[in-house]
Design a protein around this nucleic acid. Structure first.
Length: 487
RNA sequence: CGAGGCGUAGCGCAGCCCGGUAGCGCACCUGCUUUGGGAGCAGGGGGUCAGCGGUUCAAAUCCGCUCGCCUCGACCA
């Protein structure tokens, strides 16, 4: 295992493959998500889905294919996605009689090409048109779990794959205020989930106009900083104004019997969260998974010498596992006879399992068990009944400690900077978050990006709002913004 | 799309410069001994050497073309 801080990109690829989360598929930029990785995604999906439903949203499903003409309806939107669309042009293949190669049948060309959705605003708003007539149909609060395709130039497992899995919320409202409140609410839902479940600290903010979603009036984001000091957008929530309502002619009659365009939001998080998770907590032994989303929270490794012991200790391990399951924990007994204990210790540490219980002849004799904490490497032996009682609270403690540890790391990597020279020096040396003043101009933003590689990740929503002078031009600025080199 | 690197067993690699019928480690199978931090010994199975073409008595090796992958940039959830 490479040391994470020396070559994070090598470490990242290896840990994903060795821990069995995912692997490269034969299709460029597309990955196979393996059972362990999928279990992790399910543990991310479940609480998010519950949070969406708790805030009044319903799930639905819209088509994978979008007629090309739909995408063209919203000018900024089509421009934003034009460079990365996969397009279906034929509906049949044939074997060429001369070359013997299989190819699209030229006779079977589609009248209108279909775009594989890079996001679903257009097809959903085309549908919403039929669902909305009156203010009584509003708000319309829909979410879908889906796959989308964006032909990215440089794919990376989980962080930027050609096909990725996500959820996309799409809502319609009677007023701008209500839609804006919805966008802000979902940003909160994301921030809470990412911090409480993934133990990843985030900064909530607004995107600058240059970084805004194609077709949005306002884009909110949660930004985090990974182990190597590079920033990652972990989720977004957009206030779309009336842009899509106008593009798709979605109007409603208000209580005064007047026809109005509806107001929209959209918001999403993706399998990128798994990448964020790996690159927030991992170490030289591999993955470190926060207990709340870990597919296996406790692994029990039985150790035996004789065959008689094997039977007895394995049985004791399963009894212990059952007691822990009754406490609501996800437990695995690794009684595989083909591997030795040392191998198993390394394997489960690589897979990031939060707690390991080791049960050997000594322990069975004394009714004890050895506990090992993944995030600290600490070990201790306790009586079995005490361990059964304490495991759940140890896991909760670990969940909090992982968050605090990440928060302290990000604090160390965050710099308040007032001189452009300092900013450049820090970005070259250790990257990280740079809190600095900006004059609000896109030209300034672009110049800084070209000279340093750093972009404005967001204009933070929280924290002090002291005015100052732009780090680049010296012109007045209302508040500090967050710069970083991004993934 | 630009710049680098790499395609040889499931995985990681050597062999290529200097052409002679393919090897190592891990993994896998069998047996025995082992099991508290990636076990040992013995035996065994597994290869269109990325593809196509050329040179040659003979090509993994030399030459040409094509395809794919990885890393780094511009783009992005």
């Amino acid at each position: 295992m490479p040391i994470p801080m020396q070559d994070l990109s090598e470490w990242y690829t290896q840990v994903i493959e060795k821990a069995g989360l995912a692997e490269h598929s034969p299709v460029r930029g597309c990955m196979t998500i393996k059972p362990y990785g999928w279990a992790l995604w399910e543990n991310i999906q479940r609480p998010l889905d519950e949070a969406f439903k708790a805030t009044g949203h319903q799930n639905a499903y819209f088509p994978l294919f979008i007629p090309l003409s739909f995408l063209a309806r919203e000018a900024a939107h089509v421009e934003g996605f034009a460079q990365e669309c996969a397009v279906v042009t034929h509906y049949r293949i044939q074997t060429d009689p001369v070359t013997r190669t299989v190819q699209p049948d030229p006779e079977a060309k589609l009248e209108e090409p279909l775009v594989v959705r890079p996001t679903s605003e257009t097809i959903i708003w085309n549908t919403f048109k039929n669902w909305i007539q009156s203010y009584r149909d509003l708000p319309l609060l829909i979410n879908q779990w889906a796959n989308v395709v964006r032909w990215e130039k440089r794919p990376r497992l989980f962080l930027r794959t050609t096909e990725f899995l996500w959820q996309e919320g799409h809502t319609a409202h009677a007023t701008a205020e209500e839609a804006l409140a919805e966008a802000r609410q979902m940003l909160e839902v994301y921030a809470r989930f990412v911090q409480d479940y993934l133990a990843i600290p985030v900064i909530k903010g607004r995107k600058t106009p240059t970084e805004r979603f194609a077709g949005a009036v306002e884009t909110f984001t949660i930004e985090t900083l990974l182990l190597d000091g590079k920033a990652l957008q972990a989720g977004t929530s957009h206030f779309l104004g009336q842009n899509f309502a106008k593009a798709f002619e979605v109007k409603f009659l208000n209580a005064q019997n007047e026809l109005e365009y509806v107001w929209a939001t959209s918001w999403g998080v993706s399998t990128r969260l798994i990448g964020a998770l790996i690159l927030s907590h991992g170490d030289e032994r591999g993955l470190v998974l926060p207990p709340r989303v870990a597919p296996i929270q406790v692994v029990i490794v039985p150790i035996w010498r004789s065959e008689a012991q094997q039977a007895q200790i394995t049985e004791a391990a399963h009894r212990l596992a059952q007691q822990l399951r009754e406490k609501g924990l996800r437990v695995k007994v690794d009684d595989d006879p083909h591997h030795r204990p040392g191998w198993k210790f390394n394997e489960w540490e690589l897979k990031g399992v939060p707690l390991r219980l080791t049960l050997g002849p000594r322990d069975v004799e004394d009714n004890t068990v050895e506990v090992s904490w993944r995030h600290t490497g600490q070990k201790a032996t306790h009586p079995q009944p005490a361990v059964v009682q304490a495991c759940a609270s140890w896991l909760e403690e670990m969940q909090r400690e992982l968050f605090v540890r990440a928060q302290e790391r990000i604090q160390r990597q965050t710099h308040r900077v007032d001189s452009y020279a300092d900013m450049k020096a820090i970005l070259e040396k250790e990257r990280g978050f740079i809190l600095a003043h900006w004059d609000g101009n896109a030209e300034t933003e672009l110049a800084i990006k070209e000279e340093t590689g750093a972009t404005i990740r967001c204009i933070p929503l929280e924290g002090e709002k002291e005015p100052g002078r732009c780090i680049y031009t010296g012109r007045p600025s209302e508040q500090r913004v967050l710069f970083a080199i991004a993934y």
